[in-house]
Amino acid sequence: MIDARKPRSSGNWLTVYGGPLLIGALSIAGLLSALLYEGLGRYFSWLTLGAPVALTAWFYARRKRQRF
């Protein structure tokens, strides 16, 4: 937890919480859309709730690319 604090930018509200907040909002929208709208809502929920998984995979892939 020590290395988490590198003296670079001090960070602002949006860069820290912006990403998670967007993903969270999309997740909630997806959770509700499948419940409220049968056809399209379902597809929308797959996209929005799949986003956290896809994003994680993307970050992981990016890290691997940077390493080699």
Binding site: M1, D3, A4, R5, K6, P7, R8, S9, S10, G11, T15, V16, Y17, G18, G19, P20, L55, W58, F59, Y60, R62, R63, R67
Partner: peptide, 17 residues
């Protein structure tokens, strides 16, 4: 806690130090 621990890190940072 996310704020003090990650405020200087880019979202999605994965280090392997």
């Amino acid at each position: 806690l996310y704020w003090p621990f990650t405020r200087r890190l880019k979202f999605g940072t994965l280090r392997d130090k």
